[in-house]
Measured scan of single mutants.
Amino acid sequence: MTYRVRIENADGEVVTIEISADELREKGLTLEELLPPNARIVEVEEVEP
C-alpha cells in the first residue's frame, strides 16, 4: 500500500509526498515522525501501488 501525503510546512507551503507502507515499516517510523519541525499533515490518501 502507498500513501499520498499532503504536508504543510512552517512557511505555509503545501507539498505532496508518496511513501509506501513497506518503507515506513523498514524505517520503523510513523508518518508523523517523518515530518520536519513545525510541519503538519493536511491530508493522507491511500493509493494503489
Rank of each mutant, 00 (worst) to 15 (best):
1 M>L: 14
1 M>C: 11
1 M>W: 13
1 M>K: 14
2 T>F: 15
2 T>W: 15
2 T>C: 11
2 T>K: 14
3 Y>T: 01
3 Y>M: 06
3 Y>D: 00
3 Y>K: 02
3 Y>N: 00
4 R>M: 05
5 V>D: 00
5 V>W: 02
5 V>A: 02
6 R>S: 09
7 I>S: 01
8 E>W: 13
8 E>V: 14
8 E>I: 15
8 E>C: 12
9 N>Y: 15
9 N>E: 05
9 N>K: 15
10 A>I: 10
10 A>L: 11
10 A>Q: 11
10 A>P: 10
11 D>E: 10
11 D>V: 08
11 D>P: 04
12 G>W: 01
12 G>N: 04
13 E>C: 12
13 E>A: 10
14 V>C: 07
14 V>Y: 13
14 V>A: 05
15 V>Y: 15
15 V>D: 05
16 T>Q: 06
16 T>N: 04
16 T>H: 05
17 I>D: 00
17 I>N: 00
18 E>R: 06
18 E>I: 15
18 E>A: 05
18 E>Q: 07
18 E>N: 09
19 I>W: 04
19 I>G: 00
20 S>H: 08
20 S>A: 09
20 S>K: 09
21 A>K: 08
21 A>N: 05
23 E>D: 09
23 E>Y: 15
24 L>Q: 01
24 L>V: 05
24 L>H: 01
24 L>G: 01
25 R>D: 06
25 R>P: 01
26 E>Q: 13
26 E>P: 02
27 K>T: 12
27 K>A: 09
27 K>H: 06
27 K>Y: 08
27 K>S: 12
28 G>W: 04
29 L>W: 08
30 T>C: 08
30 T>G: 04
32 E>P: 06
33 E>A: 11
33 E>F: 06
34 L>F: 14
34 L>I: 11
34 L>D: 01
34 L>G: 03
35 L>G: 01
35 L>V: 10
36 P>M: 04
36 P>E: 07
37 P>N: 06
37 P>G: 05
37 P>I: 08
38 N>V: 02
39 A>L: 07
39 A>G: 07
40 R>P: 01
40 R>V: 11
40 R>C: 07
40 R>G: 02
42 V>C: 06
42 V>M: 10
43 E>G: 11
43 E>I: 07
43 E>C: 14
44 V>L: 07
45 E>R: 08
45 E>K: 10
45 E>H: 09
46 E>H: 09
46 E>S: 09
46 E>K: 11
47 V>N: 04
48 E>I: 14
49 P>Q: 13
49 P>G: 13
